[in-house]
Structure formats: structure tokens, C-alpha cells
């Protein structure tokens, strides 16, 4: 059967009934001199494509291995941005497992005693080693959502860049803790297979080209409840990443689950603990 036989006419029109939360947003690559201006710009575009909430992490200028002063500054910028738009944006705290004590202090400052609701781990150190465990353990106590960047690059990963295999190793040590596999490993045919059997890992669709089939394979192999929409804006457009869900050959109910349902279920415990209604 041809694909065209399966589709209702003009199916690609955005369904305004969808509630869309974006798991994966940044303040870099966005016009604006201040964090507040940049988040305002992101929201202007988010409004145009029907996105209700943004999860924001990392500052206006990144480094792959930020020193404590650097990641504190980046977190300050996110705090400023979300303070301006508390009804539209959630903040995740950026940590560096090479600096455990300082990262734990940031968890206290930004999550335990601040408004942030999640943890972002990037490329300073691969996540398979035990150094990261205290950060995960404290994040769990705080009910924070945990997000780990991953890639399987044909062209070679950065030295500290985790693969989905590394994340599986971490997830095995915390089998009851949900952890999000950032980018689904980028090369998603590999990433999905890598995390399939580790049921506490969730797939972030963000930040790779909108290659047809990513969402269908993720749903087929992981189940809809383990798949989450995200964009990786401002480096990526909302459009190309939304298309992975809007354009997928799955049901409307499955799209809604990916656009918001799964992320909301992961965030509910901390939102409830903080008294945040969303």
C-alpha cells in the first residue's frame, strides 16, 4: 500500500489540540543580549508552532568541560531566563561530574532550594563511570528529571562524550531511576537498539536531522511511553524536530504521548513536590 493511501487529506496541518512540551532547549544560537531576551525570542517562535512549555538548560556560551565557576554562571543565566517566564519554561541544572562537590552544591542551589526541576549532563565526562553516581543519587532524592547527552558518531565522539552504551551502564546501576537518553544517540538506529532492553531509559528525539523513520522505529522498539519530543533549539529549528512527530506514521494518541505525555509523567513528581501546576 502506498503511504498516500494511509493518510487523511492534508494530515500535515498542525493539530491545535496537541499539547506540546519541548524537552530540549538552549539559550545559545538565539538572538538577544540577555538570557531573558533569548528565552523571549524562543517563546516567540514556540508560539508560532504551538509549543506550550520549554525545558531550558545551559547558558549563552558553552564549554565542553566547564569549571565550577562556568557552570554556575550558565545556571545563573537559566535562572534569570526562567524567572522572566515562569509559566512557560522549566529549568534544568547543568552539572559536571568532574567536579562532584561543586555539582552537588549546584543541585542544592538550583533544585533543592531553587526553581529548577531537572539535571543536564553533557560531554565533560562519559557517564559510565562511578564518579557520576553521587549526582544521580541526589537528583533522585530531589525527584529531578535526569538528562544525559549521548551520541554514536561515525566521525568519532568527543573524549568525554557518552554513547548510549555508556548510559546503559549507568542505568543498570540505577535500575529504578528514569533517565533520558539525549538525542537517542544521534545515529538513532543504533541508539534505539542500545537502550531497548534497559527499560528505565527514555529516548529524546531532539537534535538530529529529521530523517524519516526515527519516531516510528522508536515507538516500535521502545513503546510510545519511552519516547519524548525535544528540539535542541536554538541550534535546531523547532520545525525540523516537530516534524519527526507530526510527520510520523503513528496515531494521534501516540503523538500526544510523545509531545507531552511521557515528559509530563517524568516531571510530575517534582512539579508536585514544588507545587508547580502545569
Amino acid at each position: 500500500m502506498r503511504e498516500s493511501d494511509l493518510l487523511p487529506r492534508m494530515h500535515w496541518l498542525m493539530n491545535p489540540k496537541f499539547r506540546i512540551w519541548d524537552l530540549h532547549c538552549h539559550l545559545s544560537g538565539v538572538p538577544g543580549l540577555t538570557p531573558e531576551e533569548r528565552l523571549g525570542q524562543l517563546l516567540r517562535y514556540a508560539d508560532r508552532v504551538g509549543i506550550e512549555r520549554l525545558c531550558v538548560y545551559m547558558g549563552m556560551k558553552w564549554s565542553q568541560d566547564p569549571a565550577p565557576d562556568d557552570f554556575r554562571k550558565q545556571n545563573d543565566e537559566v535562572l534569570r531566563a526562567i524567572a522572566k517566564h515562569p509559566d512557560r519554561a522549566f529549568g534544568f541544572v547543568t552539572l559536571n561530574p568532574k567536579h562532584v562537590a561543586e555539582s552537588l552544591a549546584e543541585l542544592e542551589r538550583c533544585v533543592a532550594n531553587g526553581p529548577m526541576v531537572g539535571v543536564k549532563l553533557w560531554v565533560a565526562k562519559r557517564c559510565d563511570g562511578p564518579e557520576i553516581d553521587p549526582l544521580i543519587a541526589r537528583a533522585v532524592e530531589l525527584k529531578a528529571v535526569i538528562f544525559q547527552h549521548t551520541w554514536f558518531k561515525t566521525t568519532a565522539n568527543y573524549p568525554g562524550e557518552s554513547t548510549p552504551d555508556d548510559l546503559v551502564a549507568l542505568a543498570k546501576r540505577f535500575p529504578n531511576v528514569p533517565i533520558i537518553c539525549g538525542h537517542t544517540g544521534g545515529t538513532w538506529e543504533l541508539g534505539i537498539r542500545a537502550i531497548r532492553d534497559q527499560k528505565n531509559l527514555f529516548a529524546d528525539l531532539a537534535g538530529s536531522d529529521p530523517t524519516a523513520g526515527i519516531t516510528e522505529m522508536a515507538v516500535r522498539e521502545l513503546g510510545t511511553e519511552r519516547v519524548i519530543y525535544g528540539s535542541d533549539c536554538g541550534g535546531r529549528s523547532f520545525a525540523s524536530q516537530l516534524a519527526k512527530v507530526h510527520g510520523a506514521a503513528i496515531t494521534e494518541a501516540q503523538k500526544q504521548q510523545i509531545f507531552q505525555g511521557t515528559l509530563r509523567s517524568l516531571m510530575n513528581p517534582i512539579l508536585k513536590a514544588k507545587g508547580i501546576q502545569a
Binding site: W12, M14, Y45, R48, V49, D209, P210, T211, A212, S237, F238, A239, S240, L242, A243, K244, H246, G247, A248
Partner: peptide, 15 residues
């Protein structure tokens, strides 16, 4: 398309 979801560029016109 079909390498990319065609909705990607359509939605760029919206964004």
C-alpha cells in the same frame, strides 16, 4: 523528502 519528513520544511515556513 523522502529522506526527511516533508513536514520539516513545511513547518519551517510556519516557524
Amino acid at each position: 523528502a523522502p529522506f526527511f519528513y516533508p513536514e520539516s520544511s513545511l513547518l519551517k515556513l510556519v516557524e
